[in-house]
Design a protein around this nucleic acid. Structure first.
Lengths: 154, 154
DNA sequence: ATAAATCTGGATATGCGATGTCCAGGATTC
DNA sequence: GAATCCTGGACATCGCATATCCAGATTTAT
């Protein structure tokens, strides 16, 4: 079982946008910042847009912005935006002996575990990540913000 | 993110073998019991064998047996046997600005959520599933055992 | 001994989703 | 009007889960 790599990209970009504090950042600059293929990162950003996590403005000086305060974006929100809401384990009801009236015990157990995972993800927001980073490296947000600022250093 | 369907198959087969109580069940009969492709189910059973969950005996009257008491096989054991031990989220360290001394906050958060999932799976065994099933349908284990018995009903 | 049943492991085919690229069209700023 | 940027669709590629087949080994039963 493997999570799409785009989830990692999206999480980093969301944090970047939180640090950009309302200044639009073009997809190409986000991609360059992380060494990612711009054409594909675009797809992830569009998914974040459809989920209402991110907003975009076209034209010069345009780009992506976070569309909610960082404390209102949970990791679960981002994962769901990219991976969809379907559970990883899907019961295909292979129990023998015709139709059953009770719920499959295996399905119940696997679903319970997945809910624990979702609960953890839903309990952490971009604001929490920001706090974690600042605790370890207080200058990182400002440095990132500078590197993503409208006028590139070269 | 999607879990391999073979995990579901393996869990059902493990429960079947627990109910067979030491009587070897051929892979072909397990497959027929659940309407699964025998040639592929074989692969999952072999993985369970390499993990020490299941044991096999060749020849007529041979087949698969559970190689541990049901309370000593956790759902995590089965999932790991089939999916491997790698986490679903793998940090590829795309943080910008050269090498970092601190751990990536995103990686930490995603890993924490996955540990919650693993903890749930590690906390439930085949014996628990067996108890769940008996609570809802006390005759199901015996019925399955009969259907898997060495002399097929036809 | 021979035959039948069963597992093991490797080779191979197939399908699907994640990854990745490209482009035509539209919106916005200058 | 030109440059910048996003949107959405079409398309190519790659890896992995799914699936099949077979030759070889092992054990049971006669």
């Amino acid at each position: 079982m493997r999570m799409a790599e785009g989830v990692e990209w999206a999480l980093h970009c969301c944090l970047d946008l939180a640090w950009a504090r309302g200044t639009p950042v073009p997809a190409a600059r986000l991609a360059a910042h992380h060494g990612l293929p711009a054409a594909y990162l675009t797809k992830q950003l569009q998914a974040l847009g459809r989920a209402g996590i991110v907003r975009s403005t076209p034209g010069p000086r345009g780009g992506y912005l976070l569309d909610r305060p960082p404390h209102a974006v949970t990791l679960m929100d981002v994962v769901t935006a990219l991976e969809g809401a379907d559970p990883a384990f899907r019961c295909t009801e292979i129990r023998a002996g015709g139709p059953h009236t009770t719920r499959c015990a295996i399905d119940t157990a696997m679903t319970r575990a997945e809910l624990a995972w979702r609960r953890e993800l839903a309990g952490r927001t971009l604001a929490d990540l920001d706090a974690d980073v600042r605790r370890a490296d207080p200058d990182a947000p400002a440095a990132t913000r500078a590197r993503l600022s409208p006028a590139p250093p070269a």
